[in-house]
C-alpha cells in the first residue's frame, strides 16, 4: 500500500494517512445507501413489534393485566390494568400511541413494559442480562466455525473431486439439516448423562469463574460449531473454486510464485463471499442458538424466550425480538462496512 513508501513522516501524518486510505474506500453513495437500509429495516421491526399486541383479540391491556395477576396473585387487577393502560397510552388515539412507543423504545434502555414473570421489573432488564450470554455463545462459535471453515473450504476446493471433497460434500449437506436443539439433546445424553464428563446445563457451576464458564460452554459451543461449519465451508469451497479457475490465478501460477504466496492470494479472494455468508447466517443462527440455550438451560435469550412463551410474558418477547433484530442489523452493517476494505471493487456499486 501507499503507506509503505512513506519513510520519514511524523506519527501524526501516518495516522491521518491511514484513516484516509480507509475512508477513501467508501463512496458517499454507498455509505448512505447502506445506512439508510439499516435504519429502514430497524424501523420495520419496531413497527411490527408495535402492531402485534394490537392484533391480539380484544383489548390487550385486559389480556396483559390478567396475565400479570395470574402470575402474581397478590396484585390487584384494577391497579395493574390502569397501569398498563397508562404505560401504553391505550386511551389515546393510535398515532399518539405509536409516537409514545417510539419514544419509549428508541433509547439506550428501551421500555417495552414490565415483565409479567418478574413484575414489576422492566422487560428490557430481563432480556439485557441474558443477551450477554447469547452473544458469548454466538460470537465464540462463529469465530471458530468461520476460521476453521475457511481452511476446510479452501482445502476442499484445492482437492476438488478427490476423496475428502467427495466424501464430505454430502456429509456437510446432511449436517445442515440437523435441528440445533435436537443435537443439543443428543450431546447432553451422550456426554453429560451417559459419559458424565461435561455439565448438562447452565452457564457456570456454583460461581461464574472462568474455568467453570468454559466447561459449561463446551457442549453448546460444539453443537453450534458442528452445525454452522459445514455451510461456511461449502460456501467458501464454492468461492475458492471460482477463484481457482480464474485467469489471474493461471497468471500467478505461470509466474512461479511460491505456494505460500499463491495460497494467500486465493485466501484473500475467497474472503469476500465467505464474509457475506458469515454475516448473513447470523440472522438464521440466532434462532438456532436460542433453541439450543433452552435445551441447555443456558441463561441466554433462548431460555428467557422459552419461559416467556410459557408464561405468556409478552413484553419480554417484544424486547427479545428487538434485541435479536438489533444484533442481526448490526452484523449486516459491519459486513457492509468491511467489504470495501477487503475488495476495493465493492464500494463502486
Amino acid at each position: 500500500m501507499a503507506t509503505r513508501a512513506m519513510g520519514n513522516y511524523s506519527h501524526q501524518e501516518r495516522i491521518t494517512s491511514f484513516f484516509h486510505s480507509i475512508s477513501s474506500r467508501y463512496t458517499k453513495r454507498y455509505l448512505i445507501k447502506r445506512l439508510s437500509n439499516t435504519v429502514i429495516i430497524f424501523f420495520v421491526v419496531l413497527v411490527i413489534n408495535f402492531i402485534i399486541p394490537h392484533l391480539m383479540p380484544g383489548n390487550f391491556a385486559i389480556t396483559y393485566a390478567l396475565q400479570i395477576v395470574r402470575e402474581h396473585p397478590g396484585a390487584s387487577f384494577g391497579v395493574v390494568y390502569h397501569r398498563i393502560l397508562n404505560l401504553f397510552g391505550l386511551n389515546h388515539p393510535i398515532y399518539i400511541q405509536f409516537l409514545d412507543y417510539m419514544r419509549a423504545v428508541i433509547s439506550i434502555h428501551p421500555n417495552f413494559g414490565p415483565s409479567f414473570q418478574f413484575y414489576p421489573t422492566n422487560a428490557w432488564v430481563v432480556v439485557e442480562m441474558a443477551a450477554k450470554w447469547t452473544l458469548l455463545l454466538l460470537g465464540t462459535s462463529q469465530i471458530i466455525a468461520w476460521g476453521v471453515g475457511i481452511l476446510v473450504g479452501i482445502y476442499m476446493a484445492q482437492r476438488k473431486d478427490k476423496f475428502f471433497d467427495k466424501v464430505f460434500q454430502p456429509v456437510f449437506y446432511a449436517l445442515n439439516t440437523i435441528p440445533t436443539f435436537w443435537l443439543g439433546l443428543i450431546f447432553i445424553l451422550i456426554f453429560a448423562i451417559t459419559l458424565k464428563v461435561l455439565p448438562p446445563a447452565g452457564a457456570y457451576g456454583l460461581t461464574p469463574t472462568i474455568p467453570s464458564i468454559i466447561e459449561h460452554m463446551i457442549l453448546p459451543l460444539s453443537v453450534l460449531i458442528i452445525l454452522s461449519l459445514p455451510s461456511h465451508a461449502l460456501i467458501i469451497r464454492g468461492a475458492a473454486l471460482e477463484v481457482l479457475s480464474s485467469d489471474f490465478i493461471t497468471a500467478a501460477t505461470a509466474e512461479g510464485l511460491k505456494q505460500g504466496t499463491l495460497y494467500k492470494i486465493i485466501f484473500k479472494n475467497s474472503l469476500l463471499p465467505s464474509l457475506t455468508q458469515l454475516f448473513l447466517s447470523i440472522g438464521y443462527l440466532i434462532g438456532g442458538v436460542m433453541t439450543l440455550e433452552y435445551t441447555f438451560s443456558y441463561p441466554g435469550m433462548g431460555t428467557v424466550i422459552a419461559s416467556a412463551v410459557l408464561s405468556e410474558d409478552y413484553p419480554v418477547l417484544q424486547a427479545a425480538l428487538y434485541i435479536a433484530a438489533l444484533v442481526v442489523l448490526l452484523s449486516n452493517l459491519s459486513a457492509d462496512l468491511l467489504y470495501p476494505l477487503i475488495d476495493p471493487r465493492v464500494s463502486y456499486e
Binding site: 429502514i40 429495516i41 421491526v45 402485534i52 440472522g283 418477547l317 427479545a320 425480538l321
Partner: peptide, 19 residues
C-alpha cells in the same frame, strides 16, 4: 432485503406467542 434481514425464528416466536 428487509424480509431477508429479519431474524425468522424470533419473529415467528413473537407472532406465534401473541396470535
Amino acid at each position: 432485503d428487509v424480509i431477508l434481514t429479519l431474524p425468522t425464528l424470533p419473529l415467528m416466536i413473537v407472532l406465534a406467542a401473541f396470535l
